[in-house]
Simulated scan of single mutants.
Amino acid sequence: MDWNQLNSAFTLFLSLLVEAMPFLLLGVLFSGSLQVFVDERKLVRLMPKHPFLGALVGSCIGFLFPVCECGNVPVARRLLMQGVPSAVAIGFLLAAPTINPIVFWATWTAFRDQPEIVFLRVGFSLAIATIIGWVFSAQADLRPLLQPSIARVVPFKRRGKGKAEAEMAATETSPLLQSGTYFLGQSDQPIQPEVMAMQAAIALESPVGKPLPDKLALLLENTIQEMRELGGVLVLGSAIAAIVQVFVPREVILNLGQGPVTSILAMMLLAAVVSICSTVDAFFALSFASTFTSGSLLAFLVFGPMIDLKGIGLMLSIFKPRAVFYLFTLAAQLTFLFTLFVNLYIS
């Protein structure tokens, strides 16, 4: 290690931050504004009931609610609790961090000399999210895969049943309509229906109807919190990219990055570990463009926003561990197959 290497690493680190920070701030402001000023419940009635169409529409909703992989989980949770079909909610959960105008713009800015990366990223993300949402729609009742606190307030409509019977099914399972006490999950403490009603009201509360000063205060609070959390992740990710590029021997990177299979696996693992925000991950990937295959860059850009360590932790607030494992496995397999095709037949 010498001063030249340190200077090079620090220069690369600062360049990544300078390029990425405006997009991070724009993404946080845009997603926060939509969550504060737009009520997504009005879209629930418009969602298609067909599983495949529902998954496709859900995957495209990111253009209306452009949120990163931190903001998509709360929105997906609200959609499920409001009765949106599971295919729509899961399609949105996986695609929204990538299928939105801010990420498209950021990716185009980073890879304007490789436009195929931009469009393949969008196409692969849309296809994978739609397929996984469609697969999960085969589970008629998603509640066994949800955390108990979420499952208890998710309405369930039996397929082939009329509206009256569907409402009866919701009445049978909704804790808000039961009397007496009951057990919440495995807890030994009985929970009163009034407590659960208050929790559900908080979970479903939308800031849209609040006065403008309250909305602006919520927007400011949300922006500060997300910039603090995501900014730290961005700094860490930029530091890792700079260190890898400068201090790891060039021949090691070339041997790993040029293999059609090893390069994809390495970048998928890096994407899961680094957990960098989707609004700026294109600039991180760009630092590897000269040494890694196009398919591996796509693997990083497609898989990371769907499944990373930060996202897994957030998903566990909605789903049970086995459901998150299913999501992780399907997303990894489909990403690997799609990007391997790019390495073998397109690059």
Rank of each mutant, 00 (worst) to 15 (best):
N7S: 06
S8T: 02
S8H: 04
L12K: 09
L14T: 15
L17F: 07
M21E: 09
M21D: 04
P22C: 09
G27N: 09
V28H: 00
S31L: 05
F37T: 03
V38C: 08
K42C: 09
L46W: 15
M47C: 13
L53N: 10
G58C: 13
G58N: 10
F65E: 05
P66S: 04
E69W: 04
P74F: 04
R78L: 13
V84N: 11
A89M: 14
F92W: 12
A95Q: 11
A96M: 11
I99S: 07
A106V: 12
P115D: 14
I117N: 02
I128K: 00
I131V: 15
G133W: 11
F136A: 08
S137D: 14
A138H: 15
R143I: 07
R143L: 05
L146K: 05
S149Y: 11
F156H: 13
R159Y: 12
K161D: 14
A164Y: 06
E167S: 05
M168L: 13
A170Q: 15
P175V: 15
P190S: 02
Q199Y: 14
I202A: 11
E205G: 12
P207C: 07
L212S: 00
L216E: 01
A217H: 07
L234W: 05
I240W: 05
V244I: 14
V244M: 05
V244E: 02
E251F: 03
V261H: 00
L269N: 03
A272S: 03
C277P: 04
D281F: 03
L286H: 12
T291D: 06
T291V: 12
G295V: 02
L298R: 01
V302A: 03
V302M: 01
F303A: 04
K310P: 01
I312G: 01
I312T: 02
G313E: 03
L314E: 01
A323W: 01
L327W: 01
L330A: 12
F338M: 10
F338Y: 08
L344P: 02
